[in-house]
Design a protein around this nucleic acid. Sequence first.
RNA 1: CAUGCAGGUUGUUCCAUCGUUUUCUGCCUUUGGCAGAGAAAGGAAAGUCCGGGCAACAGAGGGCACCAUCCUUCCUAACGGGAAGAUAUCUGAAAGGGUAUAGCAGUGUAACAGAAAAUAACCGGCAGGUCUCAGGGCCUGCCAAGGGUGAAAAGGUGAGGCAAGAGCUCACCGGUUCCGGUGGUGACAUCGGGAGCCGUACACCUGAUGGGUUGAAAGAUCAUGUAUACCGGUGUUUGAGGGCGGCCCGCCCGAGCCGGGGGGUAGAUCGUUAGAUCCUGCAAGCAAUUGCAGGGCCAGAUAAAUGAUGGAAAACCGUAAAAAACCUCUCGUAGGUGUCAUACGGUGACAGAACCCGGCUUACAGACCUGCUUUUAUU
RNA 2: GGCCCCGUAGUUCAGUUGAAUAGAACGUCAGAUUCCGGUUCUGAAAGUCGUGGGUUUGAGUCCCUCCGGGGUCA
Length: 138
Amino acid sequence: MILLFFIMSKESQSFGKAEHLCGITTINTLFEKGRSRNFHFLRIIYLAGDTIPGIPPVRILISVPKRIFKKAVTRNLIKRRIREAYRRNKSTLFNALEKQNQRIDLAILWTGKEVLSYHEITEALKEIIERLSQQKQQ
RNA sequence: CAUGCAGGUUGUUCCAUCGUUUUCUGCCUUUGGCAGAGAAAGGAAAGUCCGGGCAACAGAGGGCACCAUCCUUCCUAACGGGAAGAUAUCUGAAAGGGUAUAGCAGUGUAACAGAAAAUAACCGGCAGGUCUCAGGGCCUGCCAAGGGUGAAAAGGUGAGGCAAGAGCUCACCGGUUCCGGUGGUGACAUCGGGAGCCGUACACCUGAUGGGUUGAAAGAUCAUGUAUACCGGUGUUUGAGGGCGGCCCGCCCGAGCCGGGGGGUAGAUCGUUAGAUCCUGCAAGCAAUUGCAGGGCCAGAUAAAUGAUGGAAAACCGUAAAAAACCUCUCGUAGGUGUCAUACGGUGACAGAACCCGGCUUACAGACCUGCUUUUAUU
RNA sequence: GGCCCCGUAGUUCAGUUGAAUAGAACGUCAGAUUCCGGUUCUGAAAGUCGUGGGUUUGAGUCCCUCCGGGGUCA
């Protein structure tokens, strides 16, 4: 049943509730123990581990700070663009992790000062996913 | 047509691809998944400035504080909100718009300037006395008519009166206040009569009305988990502490309480979307609003969904060249005004539910409707 | 989501029962002292009191609106 779920998730671009990172304890452990890395206008924090049955291989959290964008509308817009870019390009990371039999918790934080278009965010996220999957293979 | 002013309505649509949350039905078969059908942010969801619902806790009672409101009548669950008015004042050419308005019994304050900021004598005017070098000086008293000031100066004008003056007296005018009539539900307006009653502003104050406190992280249920080891202070009828806003009296409970230090949990469900509800019609009312009838069910997320990308349509704005029409003259393949269509480019604002309603305030590209104004200019 | 507090020279603060010149310290600048710098002394500049209205003769102070910053809740 789990295997079937994995096969389906390879093809589909869905992004359901199970792939969101929820709960105060898990988020706290991620921020305490995870390793961070900066990209142009993004900052990621990740924590890898072995596969746990029933939990998908990647769980992510997207955060856009209130200090940079005062208005809720712009924060929502950026979060939606990041989520969309991740949803479209996550399959490579999934495949790489399944080969290694590992899973990862990931937080994507926004550090840029301006609102960027969907295409720019997509390029950046592709680069991040590429690097992460290569690192896992090594 | 243009120009403003007031009030109201609205706040893009469609397609493709890939997705999110949730309700119902069916199937697989149960931590769930799949299929089908349906629903999915605003006029301000914002600020949190008021009011209410709802919930918990508290309520023997009394006094004093404290806070809010303040022209009238009405609307409303309620309001500091709204509607229709009243008076005064500022502003605009006008339609209109802004602001203020409970009471004066008492008390206080009014810098600088000015004689004086309120039981006014500095200059000044007058009377009497006295001295004199005959210009006047000094002393005593009376006087608010004139005086650079100031935000504000002791009602205004005229006459009488007086030593000189003064509401000191009278006439008219303005205001205050009392009595009566008329109109109005009322604020008030208006008419008649009386009282010489006559500075302004603010604050305290006085009066009336309202306010128990805390807010959904309220609160309820279930699950998980644990230890008050030790130290200090204070207390058990000589009464600590508590009775979730302050003080005092009073009443009730009554053996722990406070500080340091230490240990555990930090998950889920309900609350949580059917209501002062929405739409349509009719009726009452100047209006805010209310009543009746019929129909509808309309987001419920929780590290927080309601979308992302691409394309098209209509709308608006700008530019371009050409043409119809009109106007002007130095009548020329001249200049200007300019509607519709075309091409290109641009714009689509303000802004994201977090228990729910009623307002207020603030932000906002535009579009539409109704009523009214007209100084100047055109027809 | 709710509830509170604060915005005054470049910086840290006074001034908050309305009265006109908004003050202090540090810093800055100029001069003196020194061969030069520091220390020290003398002097000066620097504020639309967060924004916009209102009350008042007069507002940093009182009232309202908006803007910015901070705190708190179990």
